[in-house]
């Protein structure tokens, strides 16, 4: 086990954590503003696919990244209209967007390249070191940024007010709907970038269902991290650590069940949400509207 905890493992943890972190920070913003977001998986898929399509047609991975973020933001805007303006059930809307996120890329992929499994290869985003995409440090830098935004700025405190007690927030003149729209769309942008990291940061193409449930692990990280940026970072690192360790353990032939390690995020979140370990406290106004309906 001596040469097991190497730079390689560390890089693997950072790479695994990056897409989770982007999506989780997005989910965190949305939920702290009071809108439940189980559609991160769908947003990631939209972002991952559109980033490849954009890079393919515009010949620039940065423009591709922008396309991916915008496409996922558009998906998030639908979620926002349904959850905030139409006051539809937020879980129902989230499920619908996950289905759209799974279906639209494959539909378009077949239309554009006449293949349903994978897209052609495109140029990747630049690397800062071997195997470390430029998006990796961005994801980690975003953690203090989101923390500062939420805890130390006026808009951040208003977002929290919208999420904790929308009626009280509205009564002191905070435009709850406006802040919620901004946060939900931001969650789309961030999850979209997380998806784009998978397709043009880590790999150089899109394959069907390439997120493989990462949107839900990100949601789990938000909950396990108790809706707090630093806690979410810790949860993300823990989950990514388990996954990276599993890959290395398999490669090294260490006799530990891969399935057990891969089940860890879900198991821990299940334990956390039931309050067996410590008190889990979601935003009090989650899923509530500013006015009586």
């Amino acid at each position: 086990m001596g040469d097991f905890f190497t730079v390689e493992l560390l890089t693997a943890v950072l790479r695994t954590a990056t897409p989770l972190l982007f999506a989780a920070l997005g989910g965190l913003l949305s939920e702290r503003s009071g809108v439940m977001n189980i559609a991160l998986e769908g947003f990631m898929l939209l972002g991952a696919f559109t980033a490849v399509a954009g890079t393919y047609y515009l010949h620039d991975p940065f423009l591709g990244l922008l396309c991916g973020a915008l496409a996922a933001a558009a998906g998030a805007a639908i979620h926002a209209v349904w959850c905030i303006s139409l006051r539809a059930d937020q879980i129902v809307a989230g499920i619908a967007l996950n289905l759209l996120g799974a279906g639209i890329p494959i539909f378009l992929m077949q239309r554009l390249w006449e293949q349903a499994g994978r897209t052609p290869s495109v140029e990747k985003l630049p690397m800062i070191a071997s195997g470390v995409s430029i998006l990796v440090p961005v994801a980690f830098l975003l953690v203090p940024v989101v923390w500062y935004l939420l805890e130390r700025t006026k808009p951040g405190l208003r977002i929290q007010a919208a999420g904790e007690h929308p009626q009280a927030a509205e009564s002191v003149g905070i435009r709850v709907s406006g802040y919620r729209y901004a946060c939900v769309i931001a969650s789309g942008v961030l999850a979209g970038i997380g998806g784009a990291f998978l397709s043009i940061g880590d790999l150089s193409l899109f394959t069907r269902d390439m997120t493989q449930g990462r949107g839900f692990i990100a949601l789990a990280a938000v909950i396990f991290g108790n809706w707090n940026p630093l806690g979410t970072l810790a949860a993300t690192l823990l989950f990514a650590g388990a996954q990276a360790f599993q890959v290395q353990a398999q490669a090294a032939g260490v006799g530990i069940s891969a399935d057990l390690l891969l089940a860890l995020p879900y198991l821990l979140t299940l334990i956390a949400i039931t309050g067996l370990v410590r008190h889990s406290r979601p935003p009090a106004g989650l899923g509530r509207h500013p006015t009586v309906d």
Binding site: I78, W82, L86, R87, A88, D89, V92, A93, I95, A96, L97, N98, L99, L100, A102, G103, I104, I106, F107, Q110, R111, A116, D293
Partner: peptide, 26 residues
């Protein structure tokens, strides 16, 4: 026509069910 259209249709069906349900309350 890609059969994944059905997935997209499912998503749209759910969204419109939700919108129809909201219409009355709104």
């Amino acid at each position: 026509t890609s059969k994944e259209l059905v997935l997209v249709l499912q998503g749209v069906i759910i969204l419109s069910v939700a919108a129809f349900a909201s219409a009355g309350r709104l």
